[in-house]
Design a protein around this nucleic acid. Structure first.
Lengths: 182, 182
DNA sequence: ACGGTGACTAAGCGCTTGCTTAGTTTCGCA
DNA sequence: TGCGAAACTAAGCAAGCGCTTAGTCACCGT
C-alpha cells in the first residue's frame, strides 16, 4: 500500500502500472495479487483509510477545543498539517478518488461529506454565537477547505515551511476569512 | 482540441485514449494524427493556450483597476470566474500539466510563475501603501490562488451559483484575507 | 518428520494502447 | 475540367497493460 500510495501520488492512478507497484514493494508483478484482488481495490483501500484518518484527526481537533473560534483554528491547522505530513496519501485522497468504481466512490464521498459537515457545524455555531461574520456558510466552508486541501498540491518535503507552520498560517488565514477576532 | 479537453478534464490524461478523442471529434482514430503528432502534443497545446488565456485575462483585469485593493478584487474575481466558465480547460491546466514532457512542462511552469508574480506584485503594492495587513506575502498569495484554482475542482454547470457570482464571492473573501477595508 | 497453509514467482494470456501505413476522398484554384 | 494538397479512413503493428495459472518455497503446529 505504501508503494501504491507513492506511485499513485506521483503519476496518478492510470499512469501507474501494477508492475510499478510490485517493484516498489520489492515483489514480482504477481505478488501484489496475493494481497489485493485488483489495482482498483488497492486504490479503494488507500482512499478509504486516508479519508478515515483525516476525518478522525479533524474530529479529535474539534472535540479538544472549547469555542467555535478555537475549533475552527484547530480544525484548519490540523487538516492543513495532515495534507502536508501525509501528502502522498492526501494526493491520492484528493485527486484519484474519481477513478474508483461507482460503489466505492459513493462510500468515499460519504466520508467527504462528513468532513464538510464538521466545518459547516463550526461555522453555524460561530455565527449563532456572534463570533463570526459570514455572508454564506456554504461558500465560506468551501473556501476554507480549498486552502487546506490545496496544501497537498503544492507541498513538498524540501519546502521552507514545516507542516506545523503551514497549519498555523492557514489557521490564522481561516480566522480572517470568517471575520473572527484574533 | 475541444474533444480532448473534455476527455482529459473528465477522465485524466492517461485514462483518455486517442480513440476517445477521435470519436469525440467525429473522426477515425487515425484522423487525430493529421493535426497532432502525439497525444502529449495535444495536451501541450491545450495546456499552453489555457495558461496563456488565463494570464491574459488576469493581466487585463489588473490593468483596468486603479488601486491595489481594486486590482486584487478584480484579479481574484476574474481568475475564479475563468476557472468556472472554462472549467474543462481549467482542469487540464491545473491537474494534467505534470504529464507533459520535461521541456513542455518547463514552458508551462514559466507561465504559471507569471501569474504568481502578478498576485505578489499587487500584495506588495497594497502592503507598501498601507492598504493590506499581511504576515507573509508568499503564504498569502498561495492561499489566494488556492481559493481561485480550487473552483475548477468543484465547479459544475449544474451548480447553484453562476461563474460571475463565484468570482464576486471569492473577491470578497480575498479582501478579507489581506485585511483590506471593504 | 510431516502435512497444510499462506507468501511468493516465472511465464504468459488476451486485450488495449499509441501510433503508422497505404490508400481514398474532398476541396480550392487555375 | 483537372490537378496538387490537405483531410481523412481501414487495417493493423509492436508494445505494454491488468491479471491468471501452475508451481515453488518457507514456516508452523503436531
Amino acid at each position: 500500500m505504501q508503494a501504491a500510495a507513492r506511485a499513485f501520488a506521483d503519476k496518478g492512478f492510470h499512469a501507474t502500472t501494477t508492475r510499478d507497484i510490485a517493484s516498489g514493494a520489492g515483489l514480482s508483478p504477481a505478488g501484489v495479487y496475493v494481497h489485493f484482488g485488483s489495482k482498483e481495490e488497492l486504490l479503494f483501500n488507500l482512499s478509504r483509510t486516508g479519508h478515515e484518518s483525516a476525518l478522525r484527526e479533524v474530529r479529535a481537533a474539534v472535540a479538544d477545543a472549547a469555542t467555535p473560534t478555537q475549533q475552527l483554528a484547530d480544525l484548519v491547522a490540523t487538516f492543513s498539517q495532515w495534507h502536508a505530513e501525509q501528502y502522498e496519501i492526501a494526493r491520492v485522497v484528493q485527486y484519484e478518488h474519481h477513478h474508483l468504481t461507482p460503489e466505492h466512490h459513493a462510500e468515499v464521498l460519504a466520508l467527504r461529506k462528513q468532513i464538510d459537515a464538521v466545518v459547516r457545524g463550526i461555522l453555524e455555531a460561530g455565527t449563532r454565537e456572534g463570533l463570526f461574520t459570514i455572508d454564506d456558510i456554504g461558500d465560506t466552508a468551501l473556501a476554507l477547505l480549498s486552502i487546506a486541501v490545496d496544501v497537498a498540491r503544492w507541498y513538498s518535503p524540501t519546502i521552507r515551511r514545516t507542516p506545523a507552520q503551514i497549519g498555523a498560517t492557514n489557521a490564522h488565514l481561516a480566522l480572517r476569512l470568517v471575520g473572527a477576532a484574533t
